[in-house]
Design a protein around this nucleic acid. Structure first.
Length: 170
DNA sequence: ACCCCGATCGTA
DNA sequence: ACGATCGGGGTT
């Protein structure tokens, strides 16, 4: 199916986060359907890495939409994000969960950003990749429009008031 | 050089 | 409830 393009990502982060639910994520030989996302939006969002200004780690968030932002958390897990909005406006969508379509049609639930990256084998090597140009790392349309609920983001100490987490129901 | 803490997860 | 484990970012 149709590959998601730059225009898809270069929009309001909350819209992108909601619309990423049900999309297919392809990385090398693996693919899955996204079921949970969170938005991190700009320098005024205290939970966003960009809140401290531009640094070596977060500079990709300040760049073009449609690039991957991968970082190491707690010394042992990786988190996968996709950069959104216009260049120089730092924002991204964290991919927190997905359902895998296994070769033997076994369903695997990747609930949690660390588990998702561990399963897909995504590491800092995959940081700053243009996913609208790559032939091994990209997203596609599926036609799915899953029902979802809206909740506060999890695992953060600041910015808990924002309802910027989106989870597919059922 | 040092210190604190984090967009997590598995175990207890 | 807690420990694992380490890099980023701020401070001395």
């Amino acid at each position: 199916m149709e590959i998601l393009n730059r225009n898809f990502f270069e929009r309001d982060t909350l819209v992108v986060a909601k619309e990423l639910l049900g999309k297919k994520l392809i990385f090398k030989d693996k693919q899955c359907i996204i079921t949970e996302t969170e938005a991190y939006i700009g320098m005024n969002d205290p939970a966003c890495h960009a809140a401290v200004g531009k640094t070596k780690r977060n500079e990709v968030m300040f760049g073009n939409a449609g690039f991957s932002y991968v970082y190491l958390i707690y010394g042992m897990y990786h988190c996968l994000n996709f950069v959104t909005e216009k260049k120089e406006f730092p924002a991204a969508v964290l991919i927190r969960g997905a359902k895998v379509i296994d070769n033997n049609s076994q369903e695997i639930d990747l609930n949690g950003p660390g588990k998702l990256c561990r399963f897909l084998n995504i590491t800092k090597e995959e940081n700053n990749i243009d996913i609208v140009k790559s032939d091994y790392f990209y997203l596609t349309e599926t036609g799915l429009k899953p029902k979802y609920k809206i909740t506060p983001r999890v695992g953060i100490s600041k910015g808990k008031d924002k309802l910027w987490r989106f989870v597919v129901e059922n």
